[in-house]
Design a binder for these strands. Structure first.
Lengths: 211, 211
DNA sequence: TACGCAATACCCATTAAAGGGTATTTTTAT
DNA sequence: ATAAAAATACCCTTTAATGGGTATTGCGTA
């Protein structure tokens, strides 16, 4: 039976292009294309897939969140992040999340096909010319995060604000007091020199803080 | 004779993908692919091309520089910038440089093919939903806008909220009362079934309300 | 012309956010 | 071991946002 491949990317030309590319490899692929996370999520919940290829930034949505959400659905699916952002901290984050491969869009088609054909395995794969740096990487290695000295918990709270949660709701999901959330928001504002959550969300988007 | 199309992009998967896409349109295209500016420059100096599709960021090189350099060689070539960066100042810069079209990578394949087939003309082309000026985009053909019956002024206010402005500041820039802004925000929330501005911003981003 | 809708603007009360403190405990790094 | 940073949590006041009304004006269009 043909491999079922789901691709999610908001760059339509890329989405359609890579779809044509895969169709013409000689391998028998059944390809499902999505340019928004919502319909992609729906599909993955209702159907199984052999391979799931996902961008990191889809209409300003976090591809990581989608992968995290669907983790249980993707137990038998080879998940591949395919993105223009090729940063150490993103690769490390993907690894931790249990993603099977992390490829940059500069990848040759042959390499992508190799990865697809290799099937699901325990090995994490990223591009051959990738050299890990000499330091230990964490999710905090985003240069903007470091520059503004945003802490882990603060970052967590930023993400929940972006999701539309109120301070009360954030307090509930993080099992902390609402006054603590208030303190964190206060500190975030001071560090970023802003004074409302709209500006915070704008800042986060502009600096890819959500990745 | 077939149209000679030169494409330059360092995202190999995109380059190969779009190449396959164009090959399978039924139109007879002769496609030359380059993933670095140097060999692309060499080719364009030594050969003529009907269409030249170029990214803006190729191995950290500026696509604009390449276009400027080769301006005299490209007198009879339709030049198209095809990039993920869709910013007003870039579009204006392209226009000034005499580039024929500026397309974002979210463009549907049909639109790209239309642009290619239109041939060289005096008209500058960019994506249909782009409107020059102080970021005034016509989103009224956006199905989401129509579905939720968001009016023109409401949309304007959404954009200002996303920019980080408070109700008072919005009132000032639109020359209306703060109570009017409040009313609009109230109506927007009711229509979208949300209850805070973070959710509003999330909704706007997810549905490309800003484009 | 009458209807609906958009845009304007106010009333009210309640809730949430913002920003000023201070302070404790826990974690991390030197 | 100790100092710094992070995370926790409260006090307070002020400001902004939310959501319930009502109401007028103008503008297309059926």
């Amino acid at each position: 039976m043909p491999k079922q491949i789901v691709i999610c990317d908001d760059h339509l030309l890329f989405l359609n292009g890579i779809s044509e590319l895969l169709k013409n490899t000689g391998n028998n692929y059944c390809i499902f294309k999505f340019s928004d996370v919502h319909s992609c999520r729906q599909h993955l919940i209702q159907h199984t897939a052999d391979v799931f290829i996902c961008d990191l930034n889809i209409n300003h949505n976090d591809g990581f969140l989608l992968l995290e959400e669907l983790k249980s659905q993707l137990k038998n699916t080879k998940t591949i992040i395919l993105t223009a952002y090729y940063e150490d901290f993103l690769i490390q984050k993907a690894k931790k999340l249990g993603v099977d491969a992390f490829l940059k869009k500069e990848t040759p088609a042959e390499e992508l096909i190799e990865v697809i054909e290799a099937g699901k395995s325990k090995e994490f794969y990223t591009n051959k010319n990738y050299k890990q740096g000499n330091s230990v990487y964490s999710t905090m290695d985003n240069p903007i995060i470091n520059k503004f000295r945003i802490s882990k918990q603060e970052k967590e709270i930023i993400k929940l604000i972006i999701k539309g949660l109120t301070s009360k709701e954030i307090a509930d999901v993080l099992f902390i007091s609402i006054t603590t959330v208030t303190t964190h928001r206060k500190n975030i504002h001071r560090k970023l020199e802003i004074s409302n959550s709209s500006s915070l969300i704008k800042f986060a988007h502009e600096n890819n803080l959500l990745l």
